[in-house]
Design a protein around this nucleic acid. Structure first.
Lengths: 154, 154
DNA sequence: TCAACTCCTATAATTTCGATAGGAATTATA
DNA sequence: TATAATTCCTATCGAAATTATAGGAGTTGA
């Protein structure tokens, strides 16, 4: 499971991606209310996203946060790594966060590792394709579909 | 990341799968030493695997644990669910452990959910294919390959 | 100068993880 | 039938992670 922190981060990023074209900062409290995220917790999250270069901020009155990259450039894999660390299910198949399994005798002939390496690769690929733009496009598509099915019911 | 508990469980199951043909119980302490798992911790794990029907046990002297199912029938997905709960990265895309996201407004048009649903499905499929038999077969294959590459170096 | 913001550090409650302790119950075998 | 070797069961523990909250310093626009 991903942490609430990561989930909140994604929610906030998608929210900001939808406001991207307006080219003006969005206040923490507005994001917090719209996305139902605890205000103070969100504050810390946005700070991390800013330090990671995904967001930028403007201080003082009329200040707030805004995307620093295009919605096509920010993907869920990077967000997850930022808050939750490795995407891999075993430390021995992580790339950036690689660690040997304590109990393992020979990593190179480990069938378990081989399985989890496959899972990691597939997962990372899927999550890298999942950009903010992709998420919004999926959401729009689902919105259309649900409108159509509502009409059909009537 | 999967828990140590799950990792240990898989290690123990693979060990028992290799002994499957001998048709006699293996003692906890032997598994613990061979697989480098803390003895008392392993005890609890094996008990859970037994209650889940994957293992069976014989009490008393000369007792121990053995597979209750074929190595082709036991897969990693089931083991992970037993110890770590849902395989899904978000509660709202889990099947058996489904839960609504607190902050979510409309699940049916959520682009984030759509992405994580795809990831879940692919992951579950891969982990269901990863049976004990499959793990051992991969390990054997890797063993052969590493022997060949050793020869080449000489 | 004031009000509205972000920025930063500290801390706290709760839960989960990884493990250990101790002994009851069961069984093979001498 | 006594003994040694084993599983079975419950309870507990420390450390770490998670999910926040508090309080105020610093920045900025009007």
């Amino acid at each position: 499971m991903i942490s609430k922190k990561t989930k909140y981060a994604i929610n906030a990023l998608v929210y900001l991606a939808r406001e991207y074209s307006k080219n003006e900062p969005v206040q923490i409290s507005r994001i917090a209310e719209s996305e139902r995220i605890p205000r103070k917790f969100l504050e810390a999250i946005l700070l991390d996203l800013r330090n990671a270069g995904m967001l930028n901020s403007k201080k003082g009155k009329m200040g707030g946060y805004y995307l620093q990259m295009n919605p096509e450039e920010i993907n869920i894999a990077d967000v997850m790594r930022l808050f939750d660390g490795p995407i891999a299910l075993l430390p021995c198949v992580a790339h950036k966060y690689y660690e040997r399994c304590d109990e393992c005798i020979d990593e190179n002939i480990c069938g378990i590792r081989s399985v989890f390496a496959d899972v990691r690769n597939e997962t990372v690929n899927m999550l890298k394709r999942a950009t903010l733009a992709e998420i919004i496009s999926r959401s729009d598509f689902l919105g259309k579909k649900s409108k159509i099915s509502l009409k059909k019911k009537k």
